[in-house]
């Protein structure tokens, strides 16, 4: 499961930074039928979490009805240099993760 993360490479300590993530996932609703009429099993990302140097700064419970390849944007405060790590899991138990580092000055 591929994902793209966008955060500033550098920030000042205390600065509010924008965090964006786009995850490739079908977000199968569970309400669709295939060509021969069988219900396609629901498979959506259920939990998306972001840790900043190990501390959770964002968490979302996603559900059916959110479009495929979900895009999430939020804000956090630049505290220290290090990593923002995203993890997510879907109905089939498949996990994904992606990280991006940031340099914080001052």
């Amino acid at each position: 499961m591929a994902a793209r993360i966008q955060i500033p490479r550098q920030a000042k300590r205390g600065e509010v930074i924008e965090v964006r993530i786009l995850i490739q996932h079908p977000m199968e609703t569970g309400y669709r039928h295939d060509d021969v009429g069988h219900l396609i099993k629901r498979n959506v990302i259920t939990v998306l979490s972001c840790r900043y140097n190990g501390v959770e700064v964002f968490r979302a419970d996603l559900s059916s009805g959110i479009s495929a390849n979900p895009y999430v944007q939020f804000y956090t405060v630049a505290q220290a240099s290090g990593d923002l790590e995203f993890t997510w899991i879907d109905d089939e138990g498949e996990r994904g993760s992606e990280r991006q580092s940031i340099v914080v000055k001052g």
């Binding site: 591929a2 793209r4 966008q6 964006r20 786009l22 495929a68 390849n69 895009y71």
Partner: peptide
């Protein structure tokens, strides 16, 4: 450039 979902395929 970032949020355009088609960019997932460009990156792939």
């Amino acid at each position: 450039d970032f949020a355009n979902p088609g960019m997932l395929w460009v990156e792939r």
